[in-house]
């Protein structure tokens, strides 16, 4: 079993991951109208990929090789940031300097509404991790209160 700080570290990793997700969502919202990038073409929506962290080095305590010990649990980390490969939106705006011959501009494949929902999701997940840290602390405090009743 992990010590109480190990449990807190798991929650901290979740919070860090959600923070990185917030960075990516903020970038998506900020670039929702961006038509120029270093690679050429409009901005592509970015997405985070989370991966579970397992400490394989920790010994397996169970009797079966496929059982996990909680010692191995390490939380989550952001594996990579990937680009959304969905097509760009075409907007008719002949006055735009990046418009093509027919007057259409390629706009980023960012849906601001979708980003807002992801934002709320990230916020709630972050808060959930805070709750789990508070619960961890409550466990410890309760244990320290043994015999005081």
């Amino acid at each position: 079993m992990l010590d109480i700080f190990g449990t807190m570290n798991i929650s901290a990793s979740g919070m860090t991951a959600q923070r990185m997700r917030l960075d990516v969502i903020a970038d998506n919202i900020a670039n929702a109208e961006t038509t120029r990038t270093d690679e050429g073409g409009p901005y592509r929506r970015k997405n985070v990929v989370f991966q579970e962290v397992l400490n394989k080095a920790m010994g397996i305590r169970g009797g079966f090789t496929n059982t996990l010990s909680t010692d191995q649990l390490g939380g989550v980390h952001v594996d990579s940031i990937v680009e959304d490969q969905r097509p760009f939106k075409l907007v008719y705006d002949p006055s735009h300097p990046d418009a093509n011959e027919e007057g259409y501009v390629q706009m980023p494949n960012v849906n601001v509404l979708r980003e807002m929902i992801d934002l709320i999701n990230a916020q709630r997940s972050y808060e959930a991790n805070v709750s789990s840290i508070n619960a961890t602390k409550a466990f410890a405090s309760a244990a320290l209160g043994i015999g005081k009743g």
Partner: peptide, 14 residues
């Protein structure tokens, strides 16, 4: 990360 600071302080307090 603000939470890193707070969590470390919380660990110390605990």
């Amino acid at each position: 990360n603000i939470h890193d600071v707070i969590i470390r302080a919380e660990k110390a307090a605990m």
